[in-house]
Each structure stands twice: as C-alpha cells, then as structure tokens.
C-alpha cells in the first residue's frame, strides 16, 4: 500500500464531480486515467485525502464533429484518439501525438483532459492544444466556461482551471482547406516524455503560408508557442528553404527549463531540427 490513505468517490456525473470538489476543496483531487497522479501518490509526492474518479462519467468520453469543431470528451483515452478514423482524417497531428504518448498500456488509461489539466512541462498534448488553438471547456460551481489554449497553461503544472472546476471537453476548430499539421517528438528513451516536442499547424494558399501556429513542449516550464517561428513563416513561401529558416528560430526568446539529460545547446539544436521536421510534414499535408 504505497499511496497515503484517502477516500474514494466515483462521480456519477460532471455536476456530481463539481459538487464533490466543492465539498472537499483542497483535500480533493480529480482522478481520470491516473497515469500521472497515481505514480505521484505512490511516491507520496501527492497525498490527497479524497479522490474523485471521473473516468466513467457518461458523456465525458467520446469524439464528435460539431459546428466546425472536433469535440473530444475530457476522459477520452489517448488510445481512442490515436485509433479514431475521424481524428486521423480531420486532425492527424492530434492522433499521431496521442499515439506517441508513453506506451500502449499508458495510452489505454491516460486521457486528453488529464494531460491538459496536469500540464506536465514535457507532456505532448498541451503543445498540440496550443498549435490547434483548442478551446478548453470547464464546469464549476459558477457554471460552464471556455478557456482558449493560449490562456490555459499558466506556469509549471499550473493551468487556468480553478480548484473547483472540472475540465469537461476540448473543442478543436477544424482548419480551413489547404491546412496541415504535424507533431514531431524526441522522446526521453526511458520515460517517453518529450525531451523536445513540436506541434505545427499551417495553412497554405498559392504556395504561401497564410496562417501558422507552432508550439513546443519539453523545453520550458510550460508548453509555449514559438512566436518567432510563426512570424517568420507568415506570408513566406512554403518551401524547404523558408521552412528551414523559420525553424532556426524555434527557441528564440525561450528560457530553457533545467534538464540533466543533455546540454542546453544540444536541446536548442534538437528543437530546431524537430521544428523543421514538423513544418515540413505540416506543409506537405497542407498541400503546399
């Protein structure tokens, strides 16, 4: 029995989960797939007195297309995202990123909402949410609200969610014709977390980049948009030389989080290389 003792509550609905969060306050933690929380609890880095299990709440899982959005329930496992024909067709960056998280067993339990709410600085899906301009829906005692991915990741493992809010679903705007996205990752060989992860989404018209969103993970204390890369792409040709030149700016203005695995210069170099790869595949998918 490694975790400290706690009480377990299986929430019957999203409203029930919010009520339980309100009741137990700071002593409660939400449990979805548990692939981050349970290892932390086994090490007693986290010792919540109450666990509120939201994994089986009806309506909190599933993938649907609705009003120009791909809407994914917060408790949808990575494996479902990776295998979904709808996601593969509409947002291949999302399915290919989900397919690279951890290992098959982790992907069967871990969830999209859990990944975003946990906000690990080396998590894969936070970068994807940024590149795809996701809208993140939350339910709390004051009702439902939506937070744009740009405003969601506040600091190291800290999000814009209030302590009494439940992340309910993520809405990904479907990009216009001529768009393409890709996720490229250099995983830690043991943990499979991203040492460097790059999510790139491009729209190309007449051979020129008309819209670009690029985000990195693993490098800083939170996932970040690579604004210098985006600016360098805007209006430029979607050719190899322009994409490579833009990728050179992958870590411009970025303060690296300390990481013992490798020297900073090498991490910056990796970021450039993986940004170039992501941009190249994104442009290809955009038809540019």
């Amino acid at each position: 029995m490694y975790p400290a003792p706690f009480e377990y509550h299986r929430a019957a609905s999203a409203q029930d989960a919010v009520a339980l969060l309100g009741k137990y306050g700071d002593e409660a933690k939400l449990l979805a797939g548990g692939q981050s929380l349970l290892p932390l609890m086994k090490l007693r880095f986290a010792q919540p007195r109450h666990l509120i299990d939201v994994r089986r709440i009806q309506g909190l899982s599933g993938i649907r297309e609705e009003k120009g959005m791909l809407v994914v329930g917060a408790a949808t496992p990575y494996a479902t995202l990776a295998a979904s024909a709808l996601v593969q067709a509409k947002l291949p960056m999302l399915s290919e990123a989900a397919a690279q998280i951890g290992d098959p067993q982790v992907r069967n339990m871990g969830t999209l909402g859990g990944s975003l709410a946990h906000a690990d600085p080396a998590g894969d899906l936070p970068a994807v949410a940024l590149a795809l301009a996701a809208e993140i829906a939350a339910l709390g005692p004051r009702g439902a609200r939506t937070v744009h991915a740009d405003d969601f990741f506040v600091e190291l493992m800290t999000t814009a969610l209030a302590p009494d809010e439940l992340l309910t679903e993520v809405r990904f705007p479907l990009p216009p014709a001529g768009s393409g996205g890709a996720y490229e990752k250099y995983p830690n060989p043991a943990s499979r977390y991203a040492l460097v992860g790059v999510a790139a989404q491009l729209t190309v018209a007449g051979g020129k980049v008309t819209a670009a969103r690029v985000a990195t993970t693993g490098l800083a204390t939170k996932p970040l948009r690579a604004l210098a890369v985006e600016a360098a792409l805007q209006g430029k040709a979607a050719d190899a030389a322009s994409l490579a030149a833009a990728a050179e700016k992958a870590t411009d203005g970025l303060k690296l989080r300390a990481a013992a695995q490798m020297p900073d210069a090498y991490r910056r170099s990796l970021a450039v290389t993986f940004t170039a790869r992501a941009l190249t595949r994104a442009a290809k998918r955009a038809g540019g």
Binding site: G34, L38, P39, L51, Q105, S191
Partner: peptide, 25 residues
C-alpha cells in the same frame, strides 16, 4: 513505477499496468 509492464493485465479488454490502477477503479 509503471515502466516495466510486468504487471500488465487486461481491464475491460485493454492492456493496463496493474501497478498504476487502483482496485477501486
């Protein structure tokens, strides 16, 4: 520590690491 997979079982038909799942789940 949910790395090695020796504890893998099927939960509702899906392979999971039983060291990273609570019995109550």
């Amino acid at each position: 520590t949910s790395q090695c997979g020796a504890c893998t079982v099927l939960l509702d038909g899906k392979a999971v690491k039983a060291c990273s799942v609570l019995a109550v789940q």
